[in-house]
């Protein structure tokens, strides 16, 4: 057991040291305005997840469990996790605010069109999974 305590103590101490080094880097290499912006984004990210995304997940959970028949639920949740998480990480390209009129090689795809195609594929996969589950005899012991 003492080996574990030693490992945990060492890990924790190294972690604290690296974290403080990072805080010092962040504070010492930026102007006050840049530090304020950094803190805004650090806090904003936590609010984004702990309030908005968490609440959205709760709402989706309630809608799925109260509003959908049992046989449909698991495929819909799989589809929602895949489509929801990839859509979230694609927000910068979907909005494409980084496009520049003089540079046609940057963000040079129809991202929104691509999203619709991808969303269509996800919906089709969910539909196929639902049909398969219904044919197998609904809500078997091991959901897909």
């Amino acid at each position: 057991m003492s080996g574990t305590v030693l490992t945990r103590t060492a890990l924790g101490a190294v972690g604290v040291a690296l974290g403080l080094y990072g805080a010092w880097l962040t504070l010492s290499r930026q102007t006050t305005a840049q530090i304020v912006s950094t803190v805004q984004y650090l806090v904003g990210g936590v609010v984004l997840n702990d309030v908005l995304i968490a609440a959205a997940a709760l709402v989706v959970g309630v809608l799925v469990t109260r509003g959908l028949p049992a046989v449909v639920r698991a495929p819909v949740v799989v589809g929602a996790v895949v489509l929801g998480s990839t859509t979230l990480l694609a927000v910068p390209v979907l909005l494409s605010y980084g496009r520049k009129p003089d540079n046609l090689t940057l963000l040079d795809r129809d991202f929104v069109g691509g999203w619709w195609v991808f969303a269509g594929v996800v919906v089709a996969c969910v539909a196929v999974a639902v049909v398969v589950r219904v044919r197998r005899g609904a809500g078997g012991s091991e959901p897909a």
């Binding site: 530090i35 912006s37 909005l95 980084g98």
Partner: peptide, 10 residues
């Protein structure tokens, strides 16, 4: 990566 420099930090 998307050249969306929406923040003001370095």
């Amino acid at each position: 990566t998307a050249s969306w420099y929406v923040w003001h930090f370095g």
